[in-house]
Amino acid sequence: MNQSAKRQTKAKIVSAAWKLFYQNGYDDTTIDDIVEASGTSKGSFYHYFRTKDDLLASLSYLFDDKYTELDSTMDPALTPLEKLIFMNRELFLMIENTVPVTLLCQLFSTQLITKGERHMLDPDRVYYRRLRQIVMEGQKDLLFRADLSVNDIMKAYAMFERGMMYDWCLSSGSYSLCQYSQQILPLFLKSLCRQA
């Protein structure tokens, strides 16, 4: 099996698992359910994941799939700030509509205690590659402050998004993550921009 086919198989498993977790709950979803819904085999499942719990760390892969999907729907004429706001809105809508807040909490807790790979921080993620492109475009257009590097802006933005998700988890999803972020994100982004 080539690399592309392997990625597609893993993506099918992850996507099916998270849909089932949302529909049926994590505890009521079995590995057999995931295998059946993904149209893969138990061998494929165990090739990528040792247990169902290992899927908790895969949520960031689902996020990256969303960013890849947004490539075809995002208007290239948007400014870098508009692109960041668009990406944030679409991701947070997806989280609100497909990710149980309890599982997002578990993702954060597993990333805090893991001694191995922390995929959420992997600089090769689609998320960081898209973010880097947009920030570099903003730097080229003299939109962002000159005293901040591309990495400084990327780190600040990623921390903002993680902080929003973390607060939403602490609040047990009691407010709209997307709506609140759409109010606060423009204010945050303004702090990264050159003053007119």
Rank of each mutant, 00 (worst) to 15 (best):
C178Q: 12
D75N: 13
Y128F: 14
R130V: 00
Q3I: 07
P80M: 06
S191N: 15
S38R: 00
R50F: 08
Y67I: 05
Y175R: 07
I85K: 15
M87P: 00
L91C: 09
L187Q: 12
S171F: 11
L185W: 00
V35R: 03
N24E: 14
F45G: 00
A5G: 04
D53E: 14
Y175A: 03
M154P: 00
S4T: 10
I85E: 09
G43R: 13
Y22T: 09
I153A: 05
F92S: 04
L187R: 09
W168A: 01
D122F: 02
P76I: 10
V101E: 03
C178N: 08
L104K: 15
Q106C: 12
S4G: 01
R129V: 05
E36V: 14
A17S: 11
L78Q: 10
L62M: 14
C169Q: 03
Y127W: 11
Y46A: 08
K155P: 01
D71S: 06
L187W: 09
D53I: 01
L107R: 12
G116Y: 03
I113A: 05
P76K: 09
A158H: 09
E90N: 15
Q3K: 10
E96V: 05
H47Q: 11
R194K: 11
C178W: 00
Y175G: 04
L81K: 12
A11S: 14
Y67A: 00
V99T: 06
L78I: 04
